[in-house]
Design a protein around this nucleic acid. Structure first.
Lengths: 214, 214, 214, 214
DNA sequence: CCCTAATCGAGACGGTACGTCTCGTCTTGTC
DNA sequence: GACAAGACGAGACGTACCGTCTCGATTAGGG
């Protein structure tokens, strides 16, 4: 969104968005998400999106430069929609004072989300595209992943202040100990995903693998 | 899995492999890997592979059912080739008695490999395809990832016997604490990859995030 | 026939011809005729026509349903072109009052045309295709052959009125006595073609084979 | 047949026919004729013939050089078969002394044969191929057409001797007056074929188109 | 409140690759 | 050595999409 406004200013040959049809934009988002969910990303085509949205192909090419970009915006928009639908703040990390419990709760919520078919198809598609297309991958991280990860960073910093985490730990790295394993199992099918699994991850990460010598 | 083994024995509709041209098979592997490295996976086409390999398209379609499958076998073959080139055993995990040092050493080697352009293009391509194509993803894990991860499992079990790791820890999960973060950074560009980073991961994972009371 | 006329007006599944590229149509005709002349009909391919015309294959498939149909239209167009090039009226049958002389003159012109390489390759190709493909064969006759034959019918009718031909003769059948032998010799290589031959045909046909008693 | 024996002698690289499998040859003829009748000539493939005949493709390529040649021999063989089945002499031209009646009778028999589906598919296919492939066309004429036409030549010569035909008439050309029109109607769908039509042809040809003065 | 320029739906266009089919050659046992 | 079987290099088939390019027909905004 921000990116778009700035593009509007800086790129002189970009079409002026003032006349842009909001109805078409929405129809394209809907069609893109629906098609990805129904037939998968590779068999989702720009022609298909245009036909389903009742839109000329040029209307897509005018505003986006690739299938991946359309889906990325559609997915971001979907996130904003559902954020607005609930009481804003997508899902912040609670702070009950019990770090382990808080992390376990958030990860359990993440497990649920990863299994929600509404999100699974498009986010897998985007993640896959991002693996192979660095530019899109970084955009995916910046716009979608990193904001969520920052919530962990904040919660871990609070824990450090409360003395629940060693002060020399870098929270940005620390969070990967329990977030990345879940991510990898989901992305690459390296193992099953369950509450028990994420609970275990938190326990292992917080207390370490080696014995605590008396 | 069972299906796979039986296919390996005798799929009635598959062509009999007795007359298969070994020369063509090799040429196809080489062409596939070269093209993926040169122009990237999406712009690698079966026609391109066939042309480069000096082979009819049908010879590819006869033995493989998709571009991804060709690349998968080519990549597996590449692994076997280079394994044979060195003194077999791809890269086992050393056991010097110092668990932390051993893990750091292996992860540093992994960092190097992830940055080797010879491996990067095809393995990214396969990983991306696997994210979106579950069947291929599971094959990728079974044939490529899991064998490597089992090496960690074994080293960690040795550590447990030596009293260097708590006996109640599940090694298959434990290894993800330091392997998955590296994997995610590489796959999704969520952060830079360095020796320092992997060393830190090992330290965090082994000793935990929380203060060791007493 | 009726079906054809209605198709001419508006076949619902046919693409709207308003946006059709005239330049491509012409280029396709030229390429088709050139290729048939150069490499023969069987080795003329739709891909080849498209490539030579600088046109996408789909542009051919959009407007024609087979190689034969393309060539048929190209040939019809060629006829119209050369008709317009001269003073219209392709070549009517003269009426000097001498029936035999008039028929001999026209048949001599036909001999020349049959030997013109510009016409030979495509018309042989179409004729051959028409032998085996009844639909195309009938189209070939309707659009190309019959119009020419009607000229004979008219000339023969005039002859009947002038008392130069028996009034009980059916002109449509009569013309075959001298036209069909020439056609068969050309089509099937059953014999050489010459002015002498066609002159003889006219003589035989007009006066019969049996002796004129009294 | 004769052609084959001579080929056997003159072409040193031709395989020696002594070991040739008669069973395969017959199976190939049957398969070729059956396929042409069932799916038409263009969709009859050498692979299809081989498969249907239960024969390796090479066995076809070893003995024939093209699909057309296979069909030609198969058709010739079919003719010989049915000739032998009846009392030899396929159908000679009767000589009752009444030339017109004799010719009408033979042409009526020809009409029947042209409508026999057993002969129609392969002979159309061969004729079509012959239109476009001069070598094959001439072979078709030499082996199939000309022998039949010679029967007309002989009958007409007898008529000349009997004073039923003008002596200055060339019988080889004369026969075309009634044979070629029928051939063209059959080959090119230029008109319907019936006993009435062929009777008319004979009448027109024998007595000419112009009035017989007194 | 109209005029005009940009956006829109539609879809033809030159291309590329798809996966299939058949060609004619070559190779591998069998008889 | 001819045969059945069938893999092979080659290349055309007809289809599906690509991204570009007109076409009128809205459709807004600045005059």
């Amino acid at each position: 969104m921000a990116a778009q406004k700035s593009a509007q200013k800086s790129d002189p040959r970009a079409p002026s968005s003032t006349r842009r049809s909001e109805k078409s934009r929405r129809a394209i988002y809907d069609a893109a998400l629906a098609l990805v969910a129904e037939v998968g990303y590779p068999r989702t085509t720009i022609e298909g999106i245009a036909a389903r949205a009742g839109v000329g192909k040029q209307t897509i090419y005018r505003w986006w430069s690739s299938k991946a970009e359309v889906l990325m915006e559609a997915f971001l928009d979907l996130g904003e929609q559902s954020a607005q639908a609930m009481g804003h703040e997508p899902y912040a990390i609670p702070d009950t004072g019990d770090l382990a419990a808080d992390l376990k709760a958030v990860l359990r919520a993440t497990v649920d989300e990863l299994k929600d078919p509404r999100f699974e198809a498009p986010s897998r598609a985007l993640a896959a595209e991002g693996v192979v297309n660095e530019q899109l991958g970084r955009e995916f991280v910046t716009k979608l992943l990193e904001p969520s990860l920052q919530l962990y960073v904040e919660r871990l910093r609070t824990a450090q202040e409360a003395g629940d985490m060693r002060p020399d730990i870098d929270p940005r790295i620390a969070l990967e100990l329990f977030v990345s394993p879940l991510a990898q199992r989901w992305l690459q099918y390296t193992g099953p995903i369950s509450y028990e699994y994420t609970d275990t991850l938190v326990d292992y990460a917080l207390h370490g693998l080696t014995p605590r010598t008396r």
